[in-house]
Design a protein around this nucleic acid. Structure first.
Lengths: 219, 219
DNA sequence: CGCAAAACTGTATCGACGGTACAGTAGTTC
DNA sequence: GAACTACTGTACCGTCGATACAGTTTTGCG
């Protein structure tokens, strides 16, 4: 990585933390450059304006997010051949990942920007819509695979179930911020996991242990 | 209502629409007073600063929200004696209410402020935490009532299920903003309804009609 | 009607911020 | 040593939140 790229990276990191804490509108270029140890001219050398910073920031966030998702759902696939069990394992891993972040989840950049949409140009908004659609397709594909093996116990659209995970994570982040309780995110992901379990488990399996070990402690 | 109170009301209404569209930090007093047809001096006569505006705005939002909730869950209670059926009816009403808003849901003020928390003083943040806790207790009480009659099919904490509704609504609002698709909110509330149905319905009721009519069209 | 309080207006000023312009410079690379 | 990258320094503009304070209109009450 060249020196310029390094500086850009540092600026984006600082900006992201500030945007998640205060919102984009309230994040001043002044504070970013002070923390980054550069001048205002330096900032505008790297980014033509604040909107370009937003665009590069969202790009970075989405890529990193997708990387984590890939890892988690790949791991679940490794630990069980049954698509339902693999997904349930991945959801537990996701819940743990969310709660392991030291000072609580920093928040979802996508959500932060959605609440200030008028501040951003079409490029940024398209990028966000694109990534939400990608998450939908990712979860939808997993649920379709499960439905091949396990018949759903309710006639609900699996696309809506897929969206539900995104909604719950974003909603839980907001709740954890409002109550200053990072543990809510983990519990909400596990609540969604409970829904998936109920939706695909055989009707007779009332309050009994699932066929494949629920815990992945031994793995 | 006196003339002063009327003006304050108008200012708060204008401010709320702007905050939901752009965020609090990007909402200028200038644009508020132009739209309200007053001067800057007039604004600061009613509110000592922007933070006081935020506080009164949140107060109004929470009160109105609670009023709508009271109405919806009261109506469900009228339409069925069974607590589960009453809740399922109310959730359908809630979904309809959410989707009936002409140009999509304006967004959750609480969520908007959570993403810009550093901008607000302790008063505003306490008010928000309080209202989130109130929603938790409201839904928790309903679920506890249901659990007396219908045994849950999973050992999930009912407090988490209660929180899930708040999370899903907030998350769905974000998603509907990101995709510019207001219908997502309705569908997510109905997905939550499906979860509640699965959680409390007897294990044998696989894909069959519930005992009490699901639809409230005839009501 | 008269008067006081409420509900403003008008003017001026301040510091912080986003953004622009442009000249200059230190370090690296071919 | 020329070209290029990665900046710094300085100066300036318009907007915004906020403060101060004197002046004016509107309203309700006795």
């Amino acid at each position: 990585m060249g020196k310029g790229a390094e500086t850009r990276e540092r600026i984006i990191e600082i900006a992201e933390a500030s945007v998640l804490a205060k919102g984009f509108g309230a994040t001043s270029i002044e504070e970013i450059i002070v923390e980054a140890g550069i001048t205002k001219s330096g900032f505008f050398y790297h980014f033509k304006d604040k909107n370009e910073l937003a665009h590069k920031m969202v790009r970075r966030y989405v890529d990193e997010n997708n990387r984590v998702f890939d890892e988690i759902f790949e791991r679940g696939h490794q630990l069980s051949d049954d698509p339902l069990q693999a997904f349930l394992i991945s959801l537990k891993l996701l819940a743990e990942t969310m709660s392991d972040l030291p000072s609580g989840h920093p928040g979802c950049l996508i959500a932060s920007i959605c609440y200030q949409e008028r501040l951003f140009d079409r490029d940024v908004r398209n990028l966000i819509a694109q990534s939400v659609k990608e998450w939908h397709m990712r979860f939808r594909a997993i649920l379709d695979d499960i439905a091949v093996v396990h018949r759903p116990r309710d006639a609900i659209d699996l696309g809506d179930v897929a969206d539900m995970l995104s909604c719950i994570v974003d909603g839980a982040i907001i709740m954890s911020k409002a109550l200053n309780d990072p543990k809510r995110i983990e519990r909400q992901v596990l609540a969604f996991r409970s829904f998936v379990k109920l939706l695909f488990s055989p009707a007779t399996a009332q309050l009994e242990k699932p066929p494949v070990p629920d815990s992945i402690q031994a793995a």
